[in-house]
Amino acid sequence: MIGFFRHAFVGTCAIFAREFRAYFATPVAYVFIVVFLAVSGLFTFYLGNLFDRGQADLRPFFSFHPWLYLVFMPAISMRLWAEERRSGTLELLMTLPVGLLGAVLGKFLAAWAFAGMALALTFPTWLTVAYLGDPDHGAIIAGYLGSLLMAGSYLAIGACLSAATKNQVVAFIAAVAVGFVFTVAGAPLVLDALSAWAPRVLIDAVASFSFLVRFQAIATGVLDARDLVFFVSFAATWLFANAVLVEIKKSG
């Protein structure tokens, strides 16, 4: 049994390393990071009015993250499985001694690590508020952690949908669409449409999926265990679906 886990782990590490490096094999990684940082800065300083608020915190920075991730995370995850299926390498990968869940995990972690790197490169924003004022650094660290977890949830959606198609563009658009539903699940746009006919329980259940609502607290630096559990189990569920989809789509 220990041998089984050791070997599964070996394969997962190898896949993680390959996937992570694959981002840098083409200029895609650099273009992504530059655009991500530019848009992130634009949102924070221009739309978020970080300076005019006169408060030394990163709330404007974090509060735009769900919208930022909605578009940027599918761009990271779209190639994970669609590319393997298109080029036929999925057959190679699945006949190497790697468990299916190990492969799913390796790929997801590579995408997540890449997203984490892009997120880490926003540190000048943190330095800016630290220079201008006296921010609550604990709250900022909590915000970064929560943001990273939420990025994982968007990536898990994207990875799963990438396994559903050979076409990366389709994978991207599907991931944005599904991501949008979960982002705004708690917004009036969705709840008003439900409130006319749906029972209270269902409305509450739908609202509880909302990334926006969950992230509001995190953006202010409040990391609630329930939110952490939500994002982790949300991502795990999508990754499990990802493995099932890969298995189903193998024969087709």
Binding site: R18, T89, E91, L92, T95, P97, G99
Partner: peptide, 19 residues
């Protein structure tokens, strides 16, 4: 996994990662 360790397999068309 044990079986795959003992097999060398060349899929049709010899797929490999182009990058």
């Amino acid at each position: 996994l044990e079986a795959k360790r003992r097999i060398g397999y060349l899929p049709e068309g010899a797929p490999a990662y182009p990058d």
